[in-house]
Design a protein around this nucleic acid. Structure first.
Lengths: 250, 250
DNA sequence: CGGGAAGTTGAAGAGCGTCAAAAGTAGTGG
DNA sequence: CCACTACTTTTGACGCTCTTCAACTTCCCG
């Protein structure tokens, strides 16, 4: 992958394929191709798996907090994480929802730049930052992959700034539903109905809105015949065209 | 530099120092230490300078437009650039102001992910993306530096999302003035008075506000004895404490 | 079931946007 | 040097979107 030319990850999550004789748990990892580990061959992968430990989180359990010493970096392997920043009075901005294959652990002066916690139950791979850096020096393709992922995140961040700064509540919600749908499709799931696993509060904190406005806007879309709210947090998109037009302000 | 641990660039812009015998223009570059070029030794620098051309821009002149084929990447060497994204109806979100040493050219599927234009007169170094990628493969420290810069930008983007999603107009303007002041100090200039070189419209498009609100908020801070507006777009900070408290919502 | 959290709905209000006009600033040419 | 124009900034009045505060309903999970 070119480090500049950010192709959205076309690779789909593979079903577990554990060849007999594999000693590395990473070799069987279903999200390997989505993340930095996909850049490595079998032997290199084994070195990587030597420095990794698995972390399991319960719903709502924090992984780390902004300003904690940033000794580890992580890879989501199952579930969904949210990362966010707080203002002193408690106002919160969710800067992203992370899915299997996504990478966390960006730091600033040795401290995490944001907080991270599990939305539902989740599992992650934990790498010692120090040890991973040694491997980065030895395997340049790891670094290249990391750069590609960072570029991707940067493009997403800019799209989100456009949303936060210039879109209306309707446009924000429409964009959000489309984003969730497209992300699901990239992970090989179906894009409709959309699985909205996070709470209204989390959605509001991601879009710069209150829970009430999020709820009202959903209701409005329901009245529009744009969506139908299904049980279990699923949202059926009845008019994709409507949603796409709304998202772009048309 | 660790690719994860993003240290704010402490290096200051150096005055031009051209040793006799230098053949590479890069060797004399005053912002070299601030950007990827600082990762290279003299010989490597010469290879880099072989693939670079200089670009001069007049005030307001575009460098590239979102969706243009992304054949080049750039380094700002003088002046200030703004990068932005547009909605179909013309609403604009400025995602960043770039200063000497900053890097541009992130792409998505071979197309630029945002538009870029000069604010005042500016100059940049232009690299062919293709040729630079070859060098990246040969000089891993270039890639590491690039990753460090991308991580820095990512942290800044998250801070900006917090601002756009959760801060009030007053908090946004206060944060903006502090950001400009700190950036100037990092570049070795003095942080007070703050040199505000961009228009009210650009500020508004950066902070998710209208020009009118930007102007009104400046007026309000003036009445507060927090700032004084000086001719030439300079803003004198009279009470740093006020501004810092405002920025954090205290 | 039953209790608590999450979500929805309602009414009122604030903050920021919109529209309009005045004041300031800069550049141009006589 | 000043007048003229064009643009940017500031100020004012008003309106609308979204927030705030509150009550009610629905959904979970024990």
């Amino acid at each position: 992958m070119s480090p500049f030319d950010v192709k959205s990850t076309e690779a789909l999550a593979q079903p577990m394929r554990r060849a007999s004789g594999d000693v590395s748990p990473c070799a069987a990892c279903s999200v390997r191709q989505l993340t930095i580990c996909g850049a490595l061959g079998a032997e290199e992968l084994q070195e990587l798996s030597a420095i990794v430990t698995s972390v399991e989180l319960s719903p709502g359990e924090p992984l780390f907090h902004e300003t904690d010493p940033a000794d580890y970096v992580f890879n989501v392997t199952a579930g969904m994480m949210k990362v966010y920043k707080l203002l002193p009075d408690g106002r919160r901005q969710v800067t992203g929802f992370l899915f299997p294959g996504d990478f966390l652990g960006l730091a600033n002066h040795g401290e995490y730049a944001y907080s991270a916690e599990a939305v539902g139950p989740g599992t992650l791979c934990r790498f010692s930052r120090r040890k991973l850096e040694v491997l980065l020096g030895r395997f340049p393709q790891l670094e290249r992959r990391l750069l590609g992922m960072a570029s991707n995140e940067l493009a997403a961040a800019q799209e989100q700034m456009l949303l936060l700064g210039r879109k209306t509540a309707r446009e924000k919600i429409a964009s959000f539903l489309l984003l969730l749908s497209r992300q699901a499709q990239r992970r090989g799931q179906k894009g409709n109905p959309v699985n909205v696993l996070m709470s209204r509060t989390d959605i509001g904190d991601y879009l710069g809105l209150t829970t009430e406005t999020v709820s009202r806007t959903f209701t409005q879309f329901k009245g529009n015949s744009t969506i139908t709210l299904l049980p279990g947090g699923k949202v059926q998109v009845d008019s994709l065209k409507s949603l796409e037009d709304l998202a772009e302000g048309l």
